[in-house]
Structures are given as C-alpha cells and as structure tokens.
Design a protein around this nucleic acid. Structure first.
Lengths: 228, 228
DNA sequence: TTGCGGGTAAAACAATTGTTTGATACATTC
DNA sequence: GAATGTATCAAACAATTGTTTTACCCGCAA
C-alpha cells in the first residue's frame, strides 16, 4: 500500500543503543528524554519498552554494550606498561585518560559515561566504581607510588592520585568554563596532546614535591620526639 | 502603598530562600522540585509564584541573596594578600577555596552553587562566570604567575591555574568517588586543612616543574633555529 | 490457506511537576 | 466599619515524560 520501500531497518535495537549512548554522554541520564532518544534513532517510543523494558534498562544496556571493549583496552594498557620508566607510564596513563574523556569518538563512550556517574551518580554507580574506576585507580596508584618513592606515606600517594585525576576530569565536565577562561583551547588531538604534556609535567613536579613535604614532616615529627 | 516587596512579611520568603539554597546546592537546579522546597520551608506551593514568580526567579533570588557577602569576602581576600610571599598567597587562596566548597555552612552557599553551574550550567551561567569566576580566576592567575616567574608562557600559567582549580573542585563534585577511593577522608575542618596542605605542596611543585618544562621547550626551539 | 510470533506504530495512561486560580484571612488605611 | 493591599492556602491546570496498551504488518511454518 505505501509506495515507499519500507524503511531500511538496520536494527532498531542497535540504533537505539547508539542514539542513547550519544545523548546520555551529552546530557546525562536524568536530562535525556526517552522521546528524544527514539526521535534521534528514528524509532517509535514503544521500542524502548520492547527492547529494554525501561529507560534504566536502556542505560544499563548502553553500559554493557560498551563494556567489553573497554575492559580489553584496560588490559592492553597494562601490558604496554612493562619495562617503562615511571614517568613514561604516568604519561601514557594521563594521555590515554584524557583522550578517552575528551576525544569525540563513540569508541570512548564508556569513559564519558563513567565521568558522568562520578558527578551525577545513578543506579549503576556502584557497578561502575567496582568494575572500572577501581582498576583504573589501582593502575594510577602503582605509577604514582613509583614516582613518589617509598618515603611517601600512603595518604600522600592517594592524594596525589586524586590530584592527577582531578586535573584531567576537570576538562571534561567544565568545558564551558574552560572555553571562557582559556578561549584558545580546543579539543582536537593536538590540543589534547599538549594538555597531557602539561598535566604530566605538573603532576611529576607535584608528586615529587608532595613526597618531599611528606618526608620532611615525618622527619620533623621524629625530631620533636613524637613517639606515636 | 509599599513600593517593592523587598521585605514583605517576616517568614515565608526567607524560609523559602534558605530551603531553596540548601536544595539547589545539594541536588542542583534541575533535580530539585518546587514541591520539595516548599515542603522543607513549611510553605504553600503558591508561595514560590507569589514571592519569586517562577522556579528560575527563585534561583536568581538565591544567587542574589548570597552575592553581597560573597563579593565582600573576595575583596577581603585581596586585601589580606598584601606583602605575602607567592607561596603563602597560594596557600590562602587554595584553603579559602576549599573551605567554601567543602565546609557545610550556609555561609558558603554561593561557592557551591557556582561549582554546580560549572558542571551543570543554567540560565545564570554567564552572570556567574562574569561576576564570580573571572575575579577568582584573575586572582589565582596573578599568584601562579608570581610562582612560575616571568619565564613561563602565558599558556603555561593558564594551564597551571586550571590544574589548581581542577584539583580543588574535584573533591566537591566527586564526593562519592572520593569516599570509595579514600574512605578515611572526611570533610571536617582539620581534613580540609590537610587537603589544602597537600594541594598547595602539589601545586607549588607542579607550577615550578611546568615553568621549567616551558623554559626548556623554548630554549630547545631557539637552539634548533626555529624562526617562527 | 491458517496460525504464530517478532517487531513496529499510534494512542492512551499515569505520574510528575511548574504554574495559576479563586477564595480567604489579616492587617492597615480612610 | 468599609476598602484596600498583602499573604496564604487548597485546588486545579497544563505541560512533560516514562510506561503501557492495543492493533497491525509481515515473514514463515504447518
């Protein structure tokens, strides 16, 4: 009856996943509307219920959909670290982290969703922490420990890790402010490389300084006869 | 005929402002419901329309309500900086910033709202940037410039500023993650002091290292006969 | 053919939520 | 005391939004 060749149907389910990924990344879970997702995917609103049950189900599916390759990338990262200097490892870690956060590619969707979860947790928060944030954090922790040396306290190393992460993630969630404060900054590959250079240099100096301060504080405490 | 309802009646308006402040800080503008605000304020829902017109009007009033004292504090901060060393000024700046972000006091409401705006801009974004973020940033910029020295490029100084801010603000918007990654960290005054100590030490080391790297890069460029 | 089942569509549903209305009580003024 | 302006309240309103219903199309097998 309708003269049109029935819509090219490359899998509604897949189109929904992709549209939802983009919108969840761009606006967060709460702010994206199911109707906008299905509009972008060229699907009917009932398709969400049919394929994923609920909006939350769709979100969970999006996370699952991007998980496999993300986990693989993590292990790749680990393997590449063998035999490198601590500074080189830190550089790799920061650059990879920044690229995943800032480069506009569907490939890195999960990292951006994780960043969203950090700022605006959803039901998936605990899972995200357990499965992705912790491994990433442990890797960074090992690197920072090597840079800081054995003299640094555990607390110092932890804080240094959070300082590194804080610097990186700021550029993702504060894009609008960065655009005002540093109008020249763009998000092209070259910009990100230079940003990584800065953060690594800054962090190397920061870690060393923190470790020194920590050691000095210890010395001062022991000299003053602190017996605790 | 009373001109402006600047001080209409004793309670409701004030209670609404206070309840709204808390909830906007805790949940952000989009996620807080007008009905929850009025419930917390013990007022009728129509009171929002009567006193502030709309939810946005209430939000604007909240910002205005906290602006006066915040601006005063800023100038106090400037005055106190006279004659101190760059490092001491950085310490004051970071400590003050952290306290405003992390200490749970109605006194510092505006700073927390600003942090919200950075992550989740609303209609008030441009105003916030212009009136609060820029002055704060300029102050930090001057300090970082002094620490870095004249050899550092403008870009280096800018990035260092953002590194400092990023470290600080991370603890505000990623509280849940911090709680997982560093369970011992609390938000009492003493904790915040120690955190400030860390961020200052880290940043001092970071700025110096960045400035050195910048100078080295310049030297290397000039040695290789770069004429651009 | 008939029947079945996966997938889609339009519409309806129900809950939420910002906003408005109309009545009313209270105070102040004339 | 009547009139006026202020403030509050319960209820309604209207728009949004996640979810569900119901019917329909179509390929395929018995």
């Amino acid at each position: 009856m309708n003269g049109l060749p029935d819509r090219p149907q490359p899998d509604t389910r897949q189109r929904l996943l992709e549209a939802a990924s983009r919108m969840f990344v761009e606006q967060g879970f709460g702010a994206t509307k199911v109707r906008d997702i299905v509009a972008r995917a060229g699907a009917n609103i009932a398709a969400v219920n049919y394929h994923f049950g609920t909006k939350e189900g769709l979100y969970a599916a999006v996370i699952r959909h991007h998980s496999a390759q993300a986990i693989e990338e993590l292990s790749l990262q680990d393997r590449a670290a063998a035999g490198r200097t601590p500074a080189a490892r830190l550089r790799d870690h920061v650059r990879t982290f920044l690229q995943r956060l800032l480069v506009d590619t569907p490939q890195f969707t999960l990292s951006k969703l994780i960043a969203r979860e950090i700022v605006e947790p959803t039901a998936a928060f605990e899972l995200i922490i357990e499965r992705f944030v912790w491994p990433q954090y442990r890797a960074l922790h090992a690197i920072v420990r090597m840079v800081a040396g054995d003299g640094a306290s555990e607390e110092t190393v932890r804080r240094c890790c959070l300082s590194v992460v804080g610097q990186c993630i700021y550029y993702q969630f504060a894009r609008q402010v960065v655009a005002h404060l540093d109008p020249g900054f763009g998000y092209a590959s070259a910009d990100i490389e230079r940003l990584a250079d800065h953060i690594v240099a800054f962090s190397l100096g920061g870690i060393q300084q923190s470790a020194q301060a920590c050691a000095a504080a210890r010395k001062s405490r022991s000299e003053s006869g602190d017996a605790s």
